[in-house]
Design a protein around this nucleic acid. Structure first.
Lengths: 179, 179
DNA sequence: TTAGGACATATAAATACATACATGTTTATA
DNA sequence: TATAAACATGTATGTATTTATATGTCCTAA
């Protein structure tokens, strides 16, 4: 599917950046739904360059440090927009180790079960708080054609997702405590 | 992390089955949170056998068709239970191509955006219906130490997840239509 | 009785991803 | 002015996963 390809093209379609910058983007809100390590990013950038979808310009930081500032080509924009417009069949639901564990939870004694659930709950509460904090940035819905719109959109989705996960966990903790 | 290893051990901990059966399990409710193709299952079974965590008995179906009925060993049970009890740090949030696409949605004209959202919505509605149908099997919460408990638990989570995804999509469709 | 779908197992090849190795420079701050 | 954190780019190796290739048998329904 080459999804990373399009993630990178999409970022470069907004503004030129370095491989390092792309890695940083993946640690922000976008990282809630897509990410890659630099060991995947740099080879992919080379590939996209070979395909003529991006170009770069070497910039000097300080005295000698070279960085490659990548930007998207016309061909790259076309490829990106073609991908962006595509309506695709639903992907298989994403893997989730914790839920796999809970699938087998009948083999756990009740206190251990509660402990695992509460441990998970705490972490989701922290993530939710973090997401809400990020969301404060948006005072209202950003203009639909601004770069911020997508960020607002998926942050909203991430917050809903965490909220419902927390509900689910709390629900089952309560049930287990009633046993 | 060898998660597939534990998914398989967990299934065999419930009852002996063949590689083919394991594949079928991954196409049921469990598949909402973990799955693997047979090309991954068979080599993993060989590996688990080499590690002494499972054994098999050859059974004949019909006249000649051999099938390997796998069952878990004591060592396998121990390994499985040890894994099951572990409280682990939150995994990174799962990748989601559609949300990645929507992150870049400011580059789409509004009708295309609505079309993509509605296409996605329809598919999630179908999945939700399918999950609800599966859930009818459970008249009430199964006993906490029965094999059905985990199934009920994660089905409930899957239904909540789809419900909130649909809410999110409907919300944004409405917003886009107001533009 | 025959054809199609389900049952059954396996390997090969390619892609995707994570972890580790490798090597530096620049900037802010203590 | 030293030092730690952030900036910056790459490769190597191993693991995980998907898609394709390969080869059958068994069962059910028309």
């Amino acid at each position: 599917m080459r999804t990373l390809k399009y993630a990178i093209l999409g970022l470069l379609n907004n503004e030129p950046m370095t491989g390092y910058d792309i890695g940083k983007e993946f640690s922000k809100d976008l990282g809630e739904f897509w990410n890659a390590k630099h060991s995947q990013i740099y080879p992919e950038l080379k590939k996209l360059f070979d395909e003529g979808l991006i170009v770069y310009e070497i910039q000097i930081s300080g005295e000698i440090l070279e960085k490659k500032m990548y930007s998207i080509t016309e061909e790259g924009k076309e490829a990106f927009l073609k991908w962006l417009k595509q309506a695709e069949p639903l992907e298989p639901t994403p893997k989730d180790v914790f839920r796999l564990r809970m699938y087998f939870s009948n083999h756990l004694d009740v206190p251990t079960r509660i402990h695992l659930l509460e441990h998970q709950l705490l972490q989701h509460q922290e993530r939710l708080q973090h997401l809400r904090k990020n969301n404060e940035r948006h005072q209202s819905i950003p203009p639909h054609d601004s770069v911020d719109f997508g960020d607002y959109f998926i942050l909203d989705g991430a917050i809903l997702r965490e909220t419902v996960t927390i509900q689910w966990l709390e629900n089952f903790i309560q049930y287990c405590k009633s046993l």
